[in-house]
């Protein structure tokens, strides 16, 4: 209960801060618009206003404050403007419409899911290989660790263009980027997980004269589940970032990344913010689904804390 109150207070403070910063961020544009509309503005000339601080302008023209929350193309849109835009482009639009955020979110989500599935599958396979083969452990594992310190997302524009030039386009290039972004976290987490059974447990299986395969299916794989879910959550967030970034460099026409890019080209700030929130909600849902899965599966396996 106390926690709920605290979280709500923090969120309320953030929203209040947001409304508050809308005023100085937007005041100059608002005053210019009002002056064109014939209103009295202090000071009257645009040149003087440019040299004044935003706070000073607000104090001189306090009547203009409500207008800063209702601009068409504000530098910082007010929370309710973003909420209205989100509502209009999700619930009120048909999902087949090019302006529906659900349509754009689906384009991004499908690439994310495909890439995530490929990346996770390959990652688990490589981890199994690393755990069972000393050669692979020695030669591949250091590279998998080093690769986490490299901004591999820089490869994204190239992958798109190269795949395009060999005739592959659409969902696949984005999925490839998503796949390699989720690949390495899964490898590292899964290797840790498959190694987590301690010597005592491995010895016990030996006394049962269990084969290597039995040891894998009955001990190592179940023991790795908590680690797997932790890295899956990191991986799916990375996949989503990959799919969004994959839409940027080629000027894709559909997807949340394309929505961000189009918004920044045409100065449609409300559109950028609503795309950003859509991406955030999508990420939260994906991580949330994985958390629910994790809790249920771990409880079934008797591992939940």
């Amino acid at each position: 209960m106390k926690q709920v109150v605290a979280v709500l207070t923090v969120i309320a403070a953030i929203v209040a801060l947001w409304y508050g910063s809308c005023v100085p961020m937007n005041i100059k544009g608002v005053l210019t618009e009002l002056e064109r509309g014939g209103a009295e503005v202090q000071p009257p000339s645009a040149k003087e206003r440019r040299d004044m601080s935003e706070i000073g302008l607000t104090l001189n023209n306090s009547f203009a404050i409500p207008a800063t929350w209702a601009q068409d193309r504000p530098r910082l849109p007010a929370p309710h403007q973003v909420a209205v835009e989100l509502w209009e482009t999700t619930i009120l639009k048909k999902i087949t419409s090019k302006r529906s955020l659900i349509y754009h979110a689906w384009v991004t989500l499908s690439a994310t899911m495909l890439g995530f599935a490929i990346g996770t599958g390959l990652g688990i396979l490589l981890a199994v290989g690393i755990v069972h083969s000393r050669v692979m452990d020695l030669s591949v594992m250091p590279w998998a660790i080093v690769s986490q310190t490299i901004p591999i997302i820089a490869l994204a524009p190239m992958i798109i263009v190269v795949l395009y030039s060999v005739g592959i386009q659409g969902i696949i290039p984005k999925a490839v980027i998503s796949a390699y972004l989720s690949f390495f976290p899964v490898v590292v987490g899964m290797v840790k997980g498959l190694r987590s059974p301690d010597a005592m447990q491995l010895d016990l299986l030996q006394t049962y004269s269990a084969t290597k395969g039995q040891g894998f299916w009955k001990l190592r794989l179940p023991a790795s589940m908590p680690y797997l879910f932790t890295s899956l959550k990191i991986g799916i967030a990375a996949s989503l970032v990959g799919a969004i970034v994959g839409e940027l460099p080629t000027g894709a026409v559909a997807g949340l990344g394309a929505r961000l890019l189009a918004g920044s080209y045409y100065g449609q700030t409300v559109q950028i913010w609503s795309a950003l929130f859509a991406a955030a909600i999508l990420a939260a849902c994906l991580v949330g689904v994985l958390s629910v899965l994790e809790r249920n599966i771990l409880r079934r396996m008797g591992m939940a804390q």
């Binding site: 106390k2 926690q3 605290a6 979280v7 709500l8 207070t9 923090v10 969120i11 953030i14 959550k233 967030a237 989503l240 970032v241 969004i244 970034v245 949340l256 961000l260 890019l261 918004g263 920044s264 700030t269 950028i272 913010w273 795309a275 950003l276 991406a279 955030a280 990420a283 939260a284 991580v287």
Partner: peptide, 23 residues
């Protein structure tokens, strides 16, 4: 602050924050 800000911080840490770049 810890009770209120930490869940929010954990939530934000998982979001695609690169998206704020155009803004």
């Amino acid at each position: 602050l810890r009770l209120g800000l930490l869940p929010v911080g954990n939530f934000v840490a998982a979001l695609p924050i690169v998206g704020t770049a155009p803004i």
